[in-house]
């Protein structure tokens, strides 16, 4: 099936995400606005306007009521999905690199960048999701997790099953695990040689996949942080996700523009790569982007995937029959 191109962003995509039902796709880019699209036809439903810098990250709660964005403008914002209204702005000391709601929507984690002498953190805030009073949100964090010793700054983080743990990926390739209630550090493991670019969970959030500039991706077990699987690519990887239903993982990345010696898109390896989750073999590639893929996301039912590229496009691929027939 032909991919749907979502044209609307003017600059490089930073993150794309489906809501729980998969009928909507949320996207953020370096152009300061967030977009919401219908996933079945790629029509734009609306935008969230208000940030004054690159939006690095977006998340939507499991009821598709609230969305959160984290931006380079030193803030995170909370939005009502149905009308695009901003109901809260958290001022931060540094840019917000990652935002994510806890599985039951009562908390929010924000990865704040380590810049200008400020320490990077994972800040946990309570979320008031009561429909009547949800415009009242506190500025007081529940918890601030500072970077573990022996690890460099946090680049990505997410909630494990039941919101029990927070798993973080660091710029020196370390993965760390914290108790989400107390912030206690459970474990750190060196997984990659270079910075970790993405960390996405399996559907049941008991395992997760990391991608890295070191051209690999790994699946790790939440409980033990054991590397269960390794996927080797031939270019730096920016994102990875685990497909439900089928045993695949999808990796996205590509040579950074400044490292590509010529302009040929073939050489940049700007393809979404499919690997067999269990056998670790590469199965196929999907071409299309003109620049590195910055994020790949899978539909919760596994019927399609979306990729956000450095080229400013979102590509939405509905899987065809051959995908389901494979193995």
């Amino acid at each position: 099936m032909r991919p749907i191109m979502l044209k609307g962003h003017e600059r490089s995509l930073t993150q794309v995400k489906f809501n729980r039902e998969g009928d909507l796709l949320f996207s953020v880019a370096k152009d300061k606005s967030a977009s919401v699209w219908y996933s079945f036809n790629g029509e734009r439903l609306g935008t969230f306007e208000g940030h004054i810098g690159t939006i690095w990250s977006i998340d939507v709660d499991s009821k598709t009521e609230l969305a959160v964005t984290g931006s380079a403008d030193f803030s995170a914002k909370l939005w009502e999905v149905n009308n695009g209204k901003c109901i809260k702005t958290w001022k931060l000391k540094t840019p917000a690199k990652r935002v994510e709601f806890s599985p039951n929507n009562d908390k929010l984690l924000i990865v704040t960048d380590q810049v200008m002498g400020e320490k990077g953190t994972i800040t946990i805030l309570p979320i008031n999701s009561n429909f009547e009073t949800r415009e009242e949100q506190t500025d007081e964090p529940l918890l601030i997790i500072e970077t573990a010793e022996g690890a460099e700054k946090v680049t990505v983080a997410g909630w494990s099953y039941a919101g029990k743990y927070i798993i973080a990926g660091h710029s020196n390739g370390v993965v760390s695990k914290y108790d989400a209630e107390t912030g206690e550090l459970h474990k750190t493991v060196k997984v990659h040689d270079l910075t970790i670019t993405d960390l996405q969970f399996s559907q049941d959030k008991t395992y997760f996949i990391t991608s890295s500039k070191d051209k690999t991706a790994h699946i790790l077990d939440v409980d033990t942080l054991t590397i269960m699987k390794t996927y080797e690519a031939d270019a730096p990887m920016n994102s990875a996700c685990i497909t439900p239903v089928k045993n695949f993982v999808i990796l996205g990345g590509g040579q950074d523009a400044r490292d590509v010696t010529t302009t040929s898109s073939k050489q940049g390896k700007f393809e979404a790569r499919f690997y067999h989750k269990i056998f670790e073999d590469e199965i196929g590639r999907v071409k299309g982007h003109f620049g590195p893929l910055n994020y790949v996301a899978i539909h919760p039912n596994g019927t399609m995937y979306a990729s956000g590229g450095e080229d400013g496009f979102v590509r939405l691929h509905h899987f065809d029959k051959s995908y389901y027939d494979f193995k």
Partner: peptide, 30 residues
């Protein structure tokens, strides 16, 4: 080799599922 990989994966998954069940945890509850 593939059969072995498959078995290993499935046994790990069922182990995790059992732990999750014992803890009374599923993704949406708490």
């Amino acid at each position: 080799k593939r059969r072995k990989l498959f078995e290993d994966w499935n046994s790990w998954r069922s182990e995790i599922e059992k732990i999750q069940k014992d803890l009374g945890l599923t993704q949406e509850e708490e």
